[in-house]
């Protein structure tokens, strides 16, 4: 592994750097170079840890679909696990700047579909680790600021628990015309 080799070389470059400073008391290009290499190494190790070794926890709460029990996510699960941030961030810019309001990748819709209720049949907010987005992010040590502004609870007029069945929510009538137009196609098409 190349990074390991790098690590072995590390103490030497350290010595090099400090001896230069000690003897000449000057900032020399060499020490700058050493510093740059060190920081490269540092960032490199962080970046690789993130992308390659993450596997999602098994216990993410199941989405409570508001249309029907058999409804799936907006993309295949594998794709969602890897790319959900790209979808929402793309949607975010499309909505903000171009006024595109398709529902497929809308954050609002994620929240309204991925609902978790506590014992009292209250939808939990992102502060609760039961929350769909939070549990997984806590596990993966991802920090998102979205819910400082976006409400992390479902919209009450659209989503509410079914009496006696805290697992499920009352199905709301889906307006077919709207559905056809709004759920197809990503924000770009």
């Amino acid at each position: 592994m190349p990074s390991l080799l790098f690590f072995r070389a590390l103490p030497q470059s350290f010595q090099l750097k400090s001896s230069v400073v000690m003897k000449q008391k000057r900032i020399t290009p060499l020490s700058l170079f050493g510093f740059a290499m060190l920081s490269l190494l540092f960032f490199n190790s962080i970046a690789s840890a993130d992308s390659e070794y993450f596997s999602p926890p098994r216990n993410t709460p199941k989405a409570v679909a508001h249309a029907s029990e058999s409804q799936a996510c907006v993309e295949p699960i594998e794709t969602m696990r890897r790319q959900h941030m790209e979808f929402i961030k793309h949607q975010r810019d499309e909505t903000m700047h171009k006024g595109i309001r398709t529902t497929k990748y809308s954050l609002l819709e994620c929240i309204n579909c991925h609902v978790t209720y506590d014992e009292n049949q209250q939808a939990v907010s992102y502060k609760d680790e039961q929350h769909f987005c939070s549990g997984c992010h806590q596990y993966a040590a991802v920090n998102i600021d979205c819910f400082q502004c976006h409400n992390s609870k479902p919209t009450p007029s659209v989503v509410k628990p079914m009496p006696g069945h805290p697992e499920f929510i009352s199905p709301i009538t889906i307006d077919m015309a709207k559905q056809a137009q709004q759920t197809t196609g990503g924000a770009s098409e």
């Binding site: 171009k98 006024g99 595109i100 309001r101 137009q181 196609g185 924000a187």
Partner: peptide, 8 residues
């Protein structure tokens, strides 16, 4: 009036 998927 624009539809949801149209840009402004």
């Amino acid at each position: 009036a624009k539809t949801a998927d149209q840009a402004v």
